[in-house]
Amino acid sequence: MEAGRRGKQKAAPTLHDVARQAGVSVATASRALNGSSTRTVRPEYISRVVAAAERLGYQPHLSAQAIALGSTPTAALVVSDIDDPYFSSIASGVIVAAQAHALIPTVAVADRSPARELQIVRTLRGQRPRVIIVAGSRIDGAGTDTTLDDELQAYQAVGGRVVMVSQESLRFPTVAIDNAGGGRQLASALVSRGYRRFAVLSAARKIRTSRDRCDGFLAGLREAGMPEPLVVETRFTRDGGYEATRRLLDGGPPTVDAIVTVNDVMAIGAMTAIRDAGFTPGRDVGVAGFDDISWCADLDPALTTVAIPLHQVGVMAMELALGDDPQQPVIRVPTSVILRDSTPSR
C-alpha cells in the first residue's frame, strides 16, 4: 500500500508543462525563464510563462540558464581562509551585494594555498558563474600567477566578470587596500603616544599583504627618527602571534614598549601570550594590530589597530564586477588608525 502511494506521487513540473499551460512553444518558455543572449521574448509571453511557472511550482535549472546566457546567476568568491574574520567580513559584503543583484553567492576557501586557489578558479570556469572575486594576498614565488591570469582571462573572454581584492599585480579590476599607508600611519600614531622601542611580528616576506604593512610601519618609524625595531617572522595566524610573543618574553620582562602585528588575529595571540607570561597587555607592553575585525573593541584591553572597511570592501568588489565599466582598473581603499586602551600614552 505504501509503495502504491509512492508510485502515485505527483511528478515535478517540467518546462513542457509550463509551455503548455502558457500557450507558447517550449523554446519560448525556455527563453522567457532562462534568458537568451541572442533572442528576445515579447513581454506578454514572459508574463504568461512566469505566471504558469509560479502556478505549477516550476524551478528553472542553472545548467539551462548557463547554456542560454553563457553564465549562471551566481557570484563566486574565493578567499584564503574563512575562519579569519578579515575574510569573513569581506564575504559578508560580497553576499549582501550579490543578493541585491539577484545573484546566488558562493564561497570557496583556498586555505592560503596558491595551487588550491588556481584549482578552484579552474573548477569555477566550468560552472560559469557571472562573477568571480578572488580575495587574498598575492604570494611571491608561488609560480601560479601566470596560469591564474590565463584562466581568468579565458573566463573573462566569454563574458565573465573578474575582480581581485589584493595587490595590483594581475590584469584585472582590483580593490586595493592601502596597507603600506596604514602601517605608516600606525607608526606615527604610536610614536606620538610616547612609544620608542618596538617589536614587529610579520609573516613571511613573500606574503605581500604582510610585507606591505610591515614595510609601511618601518618607513613611518624612520620618518619619525626612531631606531630600527626588532622584526620577528612568524605565521600569519593567531598561533603565530602567540608563539612569537612567548619567545620575546622568555627572558623576562618586556624589552620593548609595544608589539605591533600585521593583522588583528596575531595581536590577539600576542595579548594571550603576554598574560600567560605573567604580564598585562597595555600596562606592561603595548599591543597593536591591523584590520579592525569586529572583536577588537570587545577585547580587554580594547585593541589599537588600523581600520579597513572590510564589509564595504566586499560590497565594492561586487559593484565593481557588475558595473558599467568592467575595465576600471583600481579602487583604492584608504585605512585609518584607531587608538584604544591596548596602547595607552607612555
Rank of each mutant, 00 (worst) to 15 (best):
T343A: 10
S169M: 12
A66Y: 00
A97G: 01
L248G: 04
D300E: 14
T343L: 12
R246Q: 15
R55Q: 15
L303N: 14
G220P: 14
G93Y: 00
P60Y: 07
S188K: 13
R235L: 13
G251W: 04
Q9Y: 01
R222C: 02
A204N: 11
E168W: 00
C214P: 02
R235Q: 12
L152P: 04
D111Y: 08
K206P: 01
Q312I: 00
G251I: 07
R208Y: 06
L339E: 12
V265N: 08
Y86A: 02
T255N: 03
A3L: 12
V50T: 11
P301S: 11
Y45W: 05
T209C: 05
V337E: 12
A302N: 10
V260M: 10
L56Y: 08
R42A: 15
S89R: 08
S169C: 06
R125F: 02
A32I: 10
R42I: 07
E2G: 13
A68R: 00
V306Y: 10
L148K: 07
T237I: 03
I308T: 10
R208P: 01
G4P: 00
A180G: 13
A11N: 09
G35A: 01
T28I: 07
T40N: 11
R193L: 13
D145G: 09
V313F: 02
L248Q: 07
T261E: 10
P334Y: 09
T255L: 03
A91Y: 06
Q156E: 14
I177C: 03
N34I: 00
N263P: 06
V78G: 03
V49L: 04
R5W: 02
L320M: 07
L320H: 00
V175A: 09
D291E: 13
I338Y: 02
P227G: 10
T234E: 08
V94W: 08
R138H: 15
F198G: 06
R122K: 14
V94D: 06
Q59N: 03
R283S: 14
V49G: 06
S294K: 10
P173C: 04
R130I: 02
A108H: 13
V285F: 07
V330P: 01
I268C: 11
T245M: 01
A288S: 13
L77A: 03
S137Y: 06
Y45E: 02
A115P: 00
G93E: 01
V306Q: 09
I139Q: 15
G23T: 05
I293Y: 01
P173H: 06
A53E: 03
S47N: 07
Q312P: 00
R112M: 08
A203C: 09
A258V: 13
D149E: 15
I293S: 11
P85Y: 11
Y86T: 04
I133F: 08
F217T: 09
V315K: 01
K206M: 13
V50H: 04
A297V: 14
T28V: 12
D276L: 04
V256A: 03
A100E: 13
I338D: 05
E243I: 11
L124G: 05
A142Q: 06
L77I: 04
Q59F: 02
Q59T: 14
L249G: 11
A219T: 12
P281T: 11
S36Y: 02
R332Y: 00
S113I: 03
E233I: 01
T146I: 06
V18F: 05
D257E: 06
A244Q: 04
Y58N: 03
T174A: 07
A91S: 12
I338A: 11
L339W: 03
V18L: 06
T261G: 05
D257M: 05
I46E: 13
G159S: 10
L339V: 14
A277E: 04
V18A: 07
